[in-house]
Amino acid sequence: MSCACGTGQAKGLGLCATHYAEYRRRQITYGRWNPRVPADAVRAHVEAMRAAGVNQNQLAKLTGVAQPSLSRIMATGPDKQIAAWVEAAVLAVPVPERAAAVTTDTALVSILGARRRFQALVASGYPAAQLARELGVTRTNRTIHSLMGHRADSDGRVTQEISAERERAVKALFDRLQMTPGPSAQSRALGERRGWPLPMEWDEHALDDPNARPVRARWTPGSAWEERREQVAALTARGLTENEIADRLGTNARQVARDRARHNERTEATAREPNSAAVAVRTRRDIPAHRTTPTPDRRRSR
């Protein structure tokens, strides 16, 4: 890692020795120079990053702090003091909900969230082959096997990691298709046999949480979706909140919000269509007028 000036190797704060010394002199002049600070905040932050799926190698790339330095910080006792710039660099990287949101394309991250999203789309009617094409791979691709939960490792284990680039692609696909049921009854049957939750049964913030579980709804794809939307609309008209409606219908607030949006879209589309009843009345009124109107003589004049 080089200093922004391009003339030397970066040290503290990503600066070369010359610019770091200049920075240090300025901070001393302003009375803000505090070269050593307790390591507690950095330790807690690194642990939170680990829990989010960002390992120390990835964190080292994000912060510019060498991985051996991070390891020493984590291994030392509670009274450890570290450079203030190290603390600033580590704490500047926020803890993400998903490791793939901050890591490089080639970094390996947990496959859990991507697998849940992929399986939910299959359960809602999207064949794995169609989803594979959307991701730019074939149905027999090893990644698709892993997302389906099949044993893909050479030693017969189910893969637990996926590239961050592929994880982001699966999330984007899920975000685009989750509210529209797929066309395949066979895929829905497969999802039902395997017990895969539908997209609506997952809370958005729970998909990447290993300890989270779906909220199993009483509803299934198809006609029941329309019935549920009608009930959501009726309860909304009565002034109930999303959480109250979710409790009554055995679903979650996120799905209630989706149903409200879909119902509003249909209501607006219906309002733009001609009133068929009014058209029929107007047509019936016009019939006698057409009957009494003389029919023009279409015979050719000689």
Rank of each mutant, 00 (worst) to 15 (best):
Met1Thr: 09
Met1Trp: 05
Thr7Arg: 14
Ala10Arg: 11
Lys11Phe: 06
Leu13Arg: 15
Gly14Lys: 02
Tyr20Trp: 15
Ala21Lys: 12
Glu22Ser: 08
Thr29Met: 04
Gly31Ser: 05
Trp33Cys: 00
Ala41Val: 03
Arg43Met: 04
Val46Lys: 03
Val46Gly: 01
Arg50Ser: 10
Asn55Leu: 04
Gln58Pro: 07
Ala60Asn: 03
Leu62Lys: 07
Leu62Val: 08
Gly64His: 02
Ala66Ser: 15
Ser71Gln: 10
Met74Glu: 06
Thr76Glu: 14
Gly77Val: 02
Ile82Glu: 06
Ala83Thr: 00
Val90Pro: 13
Val93Arg: 09
Pro94Gln: 09
Arg98Gly: 07
Val102Glu: 10
Ala107Glu: 14
Val109Tyr: 04
Val109Trp: 04
Gly113Asp: 07
Ala114Glu: 07
Arg115Leu: 00
Gln119Trp: 00
Ala123Asn: 10
Ser124Arg: 03
Gly125Ser: 04
Pro127Asn: 10
Ala132Gly: 13
Ala132Cys: 11
Glu134Met: 05
Gly136Ala: 08
Gly136Glu: 11
Arg142Asp: 12
Thr143Trp: 07
Leu147His: 09
Leu147Arg: 10
Met148His: 00
Gly149Trp: 01
Gly156Met: 08
Val158Arg: 15
Val158His: 07
Thr159Asp: 13
Glu161His: 09
Ser163Val: 00
Arg168Glu: 03
Thr180Pro: 09
Gly182Phe: 00
Gln186Asn: 09
Gln186Pro: 00
Gln186Ala: 15
Gln186Gly: 11
Arg188His: 01
Gly191His: 02
Pro197His: 02
Met200Cys: 09
Met200Ser: 13
Trp202Tyr: 01
Asp208Met: 01
Pro214Gln: 00
Pro214Ala: 00
Val215Asn: 08
Arg216Cys: 01
Arg216Ala: 10
Arg218Ala: 10
Gly222His: 02
Ala224His: 03
Glu226His: 12
Glu230Ala: 14
Ala234Asn: 11
Ala237His: 11
Gly239Arg: 13
Leu240Pro: 04
Glu242Pro: 06
Thr251Met: 05
Asp259Arg: 12
Ala261Thr: 11
Ala261Trp: 09
Thr267Val: 13
Thr270Glu: 15
Ala271Ser: 12
Ala280Glu: 12
Ala289Leu: 14
His290Asn: 06
Arg291Leu: 15
